[in-house]
C-alpha cells in the first residue's frame, strides 16, 4: 500500500493530513527536521485547498524505486484554479505571514515542486522530498 488519501474539507482535516505526512516521513527514516518541513508543507497545501477550493484531497505516496527514497505529496482540488500562476508564485511570498498562497514558501520547504492549474479546472500541486 503505497498511497494514502486524506479528504480535506474542514480545518481539522489539515491537522490530520500533516500528521499522517509526518508519520510517513518518520517511518521512511527522514530526519526530524525534514519530517517537520514535510508536515509544514502539507499543512500549507491543505490550507490552500480549504481557502480557495473549499474541498479536495491530499495524497501521500512513497518513491522507492532506488535509494534514496522520497515522499510525494499531491494536493488536488476541483476549485476555481489559478489564472496567473506566475503571479501566484510571486505574490504568495510574504515575510509577514499574511494570508498569501504560500506556494513559493512550500516550494522552499521541499526539493521538487510542480503546479498544474487552469481557471475552472482545479489545481494539482505535486511536491517531493528526497531522503538525504
Amino acid at each position: 500500500m503505497d498511497e494514502t488519501r486524506i479528504a480535506i474539507r474542514v480545518d481539522m482535516d489539515v491537522v490530520a493530513a500533516r500528521q499522517s505526512g509526518r508519520a510517513l516521513a518518520v517511518e521512511l527514516g527522514f530526519s526530524n527536521t525534514d519530517a517537520t518541513l514535510i508536515a509544514t508543507a502539507i499543512s500549507e497545501l491543505a490550507r490552500n485547498i480549504i481557502l480557495y477550493a473549499k474541498e479536495g484531497e491530499i495524497i501521500l505516496s512513497v518513491l522507492h524505486k532506488s535509494e534514496p527514497c522520497g515522499i510525494v505529496v499531491t494536493a488536488r482540488d476541483k476549485g476555481p484554479g489559478i489564472s496567473n500562476l506566475e503571479q501566484a508564485m510571486r505574490l504568495g511570498y510574504s515575510t509577514s505571514g499574511s494570508l498569501g498562497m504560500g506556494l513559493p514558501g512550500v516550494s522552499r520547504l521541499m526539493d521538487e515542486f510542480k503546479i498544474d492549474s487552469r481557471p475552472g479546472n482545479g489545481t494539482i500541486v505535486t511536491v517531493k522530498k528526497w531522503k538525504r
Binding site: 526530524n32 527536521t33 519530517a35 517537520t36 518541513l37 508536515a39 509544514t40 500549507e44 511570498y93 510574504s94 515575510t95 509577514s96 505571514g97 504560500g102 514558501g105 512550500v106 522552499r108 520547504l109
Partner: peptide
C-alpha cells in the same frame, strides 16, 4: 518553539516579527 519548527517557519517566511 522547537528548533525544527523554527527552521520550517523561516523557510516559509514566517518570522513572527
Amino acid at each position: 518553539i522547537q528548533p525544527e519548527v523554527a527552521f520550517a517557519m523561516v523557510q516559509l517566511g514566517l518570522t513572527l516579527e
